[in-house]
């Protein structure tokens, strides 16, 4: 039995997000399913924030896919969003309200 290939890319590591943010584009046309896991390494006091999945045909022009998901509000907490049938490129993006900041480790887990 052939096992399905999978790959985890750390698309952001120890990155600090304030204001507008987006993860680096990741090309994954080979995969049929994906999950972005966002782990907070550090958050500002009373942090609130959210992100949404974006998809792209060329890695440069982005369209929103689905709704927002909450970013983790405490250090070492994790949140995620799932994607299927997404085409070529993936990223997550959003905008944090003034006074909010988060340092993240973002793992993109892909599977054939």
């Amino acid at each position: 039995m052939a096992l399905r290939r999978s790959y985890t890319a750390i698309v952001e590591r120890n990155a600090r997000w304030q204001g507008d943010f987006a993860s680096e584009p990741y090309e994954a046309a080979w995969a049929s399913e994906a999950i972005f896991f966002v782990r907070a390494l550090e958050v500002s006091d009373a942090f609130t924030g959210s992100a949404r999945l974006q998809i792209s045909a060329d890695g440069m022009h982005w369209a929103d896919e689905g709704g927002y998901f909450a970013l983790p509000a405490a250090a070492d907490a994790v949140s995620f969003c799932r994607a299927r049938h997404f085409g070529g490129w993936l990223r997550i993006a959003g905008a944090l309200a003034p006074g909010n900041a988060i340092t993240v480790l973002v793992s993109l887990v892909l599977k054939e």
């Binding site: 890319a9 590591r13 120890n14 990741y26 090309e27 045909a57 060329d58 440069m60 022009h61 070529g88």
Partner: peptide, 22 residues
């Protein structure tokens, strides 16, 4: 992770590309 030399902090994950152009 903050103890890392800054030049090594963000060397980007490789990916599998189909070289799809706009």
């Amino acid at each position: 992770l903050d103890s890392m030399l800054p030049e090594y902090a963000d060397m980007r994950p490789p990916m599998l590309s189909a070289q799809s152009m706009w």
